[in-house]
Computed example of a mutant assay.
Amino acid sequence: MNGTTDRVAIVTGGSRGIGRAAAERLAADGLAVVIAYVGNQAEADAAVAGIQDAGGRALAVRADVADEAAVAALFDAAERHFGGVDVVVNAAGVMVLAPVADIDLVALDRMHRTNVRGTFVVGQQAARRVRGGGAIINVSTSVTRLSTPGYAAYAASKAAVEALSLVLARELRGRDVTVNAVAPGPTATALFLEGKSAELVEQIAAQNPMGRIGTPGDVAEVISALAGPARWINGQTLFVNGGQA
């Protein structure tokens, strides 16, 4: 047991994509980081090794975010190894795309188990355990506002993430714990790029005023601010998309 009183972050989905970029950025900011993963231990171990090689502190813990016992054990591990929990970034997510008329309802249930139930399970432990001065940051999507055809089920699951985030901010009145959601636009992650041709990605990039799609680092920069200095932002959804309408 470390027993340190330094700040500690849990990042779900922290082995890849936005979650990994957030974990790396928070570690660079000086936080000890617990990376929660569910499937690929090799990726999680690589993320931990990268943080440690850069001089940071990190630990990988396997946890299905929709399993309340596993999530409780995840928070236990953070407290046991690093002394507590100050920041929770809930970046774990599943994306299933199909028109409403055609979507596989089994796939819909699987996605909602991670995106909706998982956010509630992680949020419940975070609400109980995050220390004063801390932050809870949930990852949503700009598709809740863009209303792109084919994204109805995914957008609906992330709209639930936003609703939970804003209500939880109010439920934690007096605790000095902020709760916000970040809503990335198209971002160069495996989750977004899967099944898209280079030409389609270029078309999407051309629609953005910045002339490109986002990077995980773009989103991690905002997460870093919400986790640390941006204490007067609370109960908000921040659209992190380069101005894409």
Rank of each mutant, 00 (worst) to 15 (best):
T4P: 11
T5I: 14
D6E: 15
D6H: 15
D6C: 08
R7P: 12
V8T: 15
T12S: 14
R16T: 13
I18G: 03
G19L: 01
A22W: 04
E24R: 14
E24Y: 06
D29K: 06
V33P: 04
N40Y: 04
A44T: 03
D45P: 02
A46M: 08
V48F: 10
A54V: 10
G55A: 14
G55P: 15
A58Y: 13
A63C: 11
E68C: 00
E68Q: 11
A72E: 12
A73W: 00
F75K: 03
A77F: 01
A77M: 00
A78C: 04
R80S: 12
H81T: 13
G84S: 03
G84H: 02
G84Q: 05
D86V: 05
D86M: 05
V88N: 08
V96M: 00
V96N: 00
L105M: 14
R110P: 00
R110C: 01
M111P: 00
R113M: 06
R113C: 00
T114G: 06
N115W: 07
N115P: 10
V116K: 10
G123V: 12
Q125L: 12
R129E: 01
R129N: 04
V130M: 10
V130E: 07
R131K: 14
T141H: 00
P149Q: 05
A152D: 06
A153V: 02
A153C: 01
A153D: 01
A160S: 14
V161H: 06
V161Q: 03
L164R: 06
S165E: 10
G174Y: 10
P184H: 11
T189I: 09
T189G: 07
T189S: 10
A190P: 06
L191H: 12
S197R: 11
E199T: 13
Q203H: 09
I204K: 01
A205C: 08
P209G: 03
R212Q: 02
G214Y: 05
T215M: 12
D218Q: 08
A220R: 05
V222C: 07
A227P: 11
G228L: 10
R231Q: 07
R231D: 06
W232V: 04
Q236S: 13
T237W: 03
T237S: 09
N241E: 10
N241M: 02
A245I: 10
